[in-house]
């Protein structure tokens, strides 16, 4: 039933697709790490005109499906003259979606910093930006790195959604192979196996990170 020869023959194609998957994952993660932090800082701002819309945005994005957001970005943005390639639209959608989750993670990290740290910065007459850069972020980030690692794995497992906006990543590659050869068994199963291996290995990595951070 299972055709090994066929499996091996399609493997290079799948790995080609995996490359796109990984590129999309890391680009989106980088985007989410930066935007998530900005969202976290903005939502804590005492300037209501800034913090309220940001909070509303976070709530909205977290309460709607990534797939619907991807369609919106890919099909609605061009109506406003912003035509995006599938990869760019995908990275933007995935990154934005997860930035709202990461902003929550940052928030918990920031909240766990004792008030004395803020007060000490004030006593030393640090500027707002200086306080964030030298005092808060360096303390808030290390403890949340494992959680961010878990979100990275989550994003990796969500990249197949980008196939819906015509990005030819690993799952889409498998589907195309299946449609051409009328054999779905091997390509889709192999995609599952690839995901299983990669996410299992990376979750071991996250656990290792966690242990190391706890030791310190």
């Amino acid at each position: 039933m299972w055709d090994w020869e066929f499996t091996i023959s399609i493997l290079p194609l799948l790995l080609e697709g995996l490359k796109i998957t990984l590129i999309a994952t890391f680009l989106a993660f980088g985007f989410a790490v930066v935007v998530g932090l900005l969202l976290a800082i903005a939502s804590r701002s005492s300037v209501k005109i800034l913090s309220l819309p940001v909070k509303a945005f976070i709530e909205f994005v977290r309460s709607t499906p990534l797939l619907a957001q991807l369609f919106f970005i890919f099909y609605v943005f061009p109506k406003f003259g912003l035509v995006l390639t599938p990869l760019v639209a995908g990275v933007l959608g995935l990154g934005l979606h997860y930035s709202t989750y990461l902003s929550e993670v940052y928030r918990s990290g920031i909240d766990s910093i004792p008030r004395g740290q803020w007060e000490a910065a004030k006593a030393l007459n640090f500027s707002k930006a200086r306080t964030w850069i030298s005092i808060i972020i360096p303390q808030a980030v290390p403890p949340i790195i494992p959680v961010m690692g878990n979100y990275l794995i989550g994003m990796f497992k969500d990249t197949p959604l980008l196939s819906a906006i015509t990005l030819v990543e690993v799952l889409q590659t498998a589907k195309i192979i299946g449609a051409q050869s009328f054999r779905y068994l091997e390509p889709i199963t192999m995609v599952g196996v690839i995901f299983l291996i990669l996410s299992y290995v990376s979750s071991l990595g996250v656990r290792w990170l966690e242990l190391r951070l706890n030791q310190r």
Binding site: P160, S163, A174, G178, Y184, I188, G192, F195, L196, S199
Partner: peptide, 18 residues
């Protein structure tokens, strides 16, 4: 581990197409 390790969409495709 299988359900958490493979992607949800991959699982849907697998059940639906395989």
């Amino acid at each position: 581990e299988i359900f958490r390790g493979t992607s949800l969409l991959v699982q849907l495709f697998w059940v639906y197409f395989v």
